[in-house]
């Protein structure tokens, strides 16, 4: 299998020590992370360099090629997120002081 095919990762959480090494080595854009300080597992990675798997001290990351029916890539994060009201509408922002 070509490494450049998009992949989805599976993390064996039982062996994961939340060390963050996979995130540290990952060349993805900002925000390709899971709530447990690991690389994201809920969306495909199109870079597929597999450095995260190689660095993992407990070897608990594995991958499979993206298949039909897998979740699509969500919109990019990291640049800007407007504060939202709980109902999801964008909040009116105060004009800057000065």
């Amino acid at each position: 299998m070509s490494k450049l095919q998009p992949v989805i990762f599976d993390i064996g959480w039982n062996a994961c020590i939340n060390c963050g090494a996979c995130v540290a080595i990952c060349p993805q854009e900002a925000g390709f992370i899971s709530p447990f300080d690991t690389i994201a597992v809920d969306r495909p990675c199109d870079i597929a360099c597999l450095l995260c798997e190689n660095i993992c001290p407990t070897g608990t990351i594995s991958h499979r090629p993206v298949a039909e029916g897998d979740p699509p890539r969500p919109p990019e994060r990291g640049s800007w997120l407007a504060p939202q009201h709980p109902n999801g509408t964008s909040e009116e922002r105060m004009p800057p002081k000065h």
Partner: peptide
Amino acid sequence: QSQVGKWAGLQTHIKITELAGC
């Protein structure tokens, strides 16, 4: 695991030959 540098588009990438898994 810095993301802030990435927000600004800074070159933050570490080479795999220079990050020790501990």
